[in-house]
């Protein structure tokens, strides 16, 4: 997992809770890197799972909620860091480009990046179906990112999450439905 996810996570923990909480979960998780992360490095995703688990224990907030929140934070950091990807008119346009464009660009910079795959379907004009598949259990992170994207482009889209049966990987289907304009606000 890319170092930027760890550095962003720890920064979020330090500001949302406190540097002490951050230091505590690092010490308790006892991760092999010792909690020394650089954004340009790459680390085992188990360290992230361990950190999240310790944060949940420390704060009493469920891990899924923490990861979801982190996803939304990560989206806001991406908007600042890579504004070029966000010059599109709608959340649908942005999300549809994640797999075939944004992830391709990421691989050009980080050939060792391990990225989840997305499949898309457009049963009708108001609906986008995105299927998340990954060897790692970060569907919550994806959900946070998707929710943040919807909010970024003004909301008005309902997101329904549904776990799919996949023996080898985490597979989740997100169905995004644009609400009629009247109730958009």
């Amino acid at each position: 997992m890319k170092g930027v996810v760890f550095t962003e996570f720890l920064e979020l923990v330090e500001t949302a809770f406190s540097p002490e909480v951050a230091d505590r979960i690092i010490t308790r998780a006892d991760v092999p890197s010792g909690g020394a992360y650089t954004a340009v490095g790459t680390y085992d995703h188990h360290e992230m799972l361990a950190l999240v688990t310790e944060l949940a224990r420390e704060t009493g907030v469920p891990a899924a909620n923490l990861v979801h929140t982190f996803g939304k934070h990560l989206f806001s950091r991406f908007v600042v860091g890579f504004p070029a990807f966000f010059q599109v008119p709608s959340a649908f346009d942005f999300l549809e480009r994640v797999h075939d464009y944004i992830h391709v660009e990421v691989r050009k910079l980080y050939s060792d990046a391990e990225l989840p795959s997305f499949e898309y379907a457009r049963p009708d004009d108001a609906t986008l179906v995105m299927t998340y598949r990954s060897r790692r259990p970060f569907a919550d992170l994806a959900a946070g990112l998707i929710d943040a994207a919807v909010e970024h482009w003004g909301g008005g889209v309902d997101v329904v999450r549904e776990a799919l049966d996949d023996p080898e990987r985490t597979a989740v289907q997100f169905t995004l439905t644009r609400r009629p304009a009247a109730s958009a606000s």
Binding site: P19, E20, D23, G34, G35, A36, Y37, T38, V40, G41
Partner: peptide
């Protein structure tokens, strides 16, 4: 745990991260 200890640990982690980054660079 004192603030100083906390800061020292953080410093140690940052240095280590810097070295990783330098090695990577």
């Amino acid at each position: 745990m004192s603030d100083l200890e906390l800061l020292q640990r953080r410093l140690e982690r940052e240095r280590s991260a810097r070295k990783q980054a330098e090695a990577l660079i």
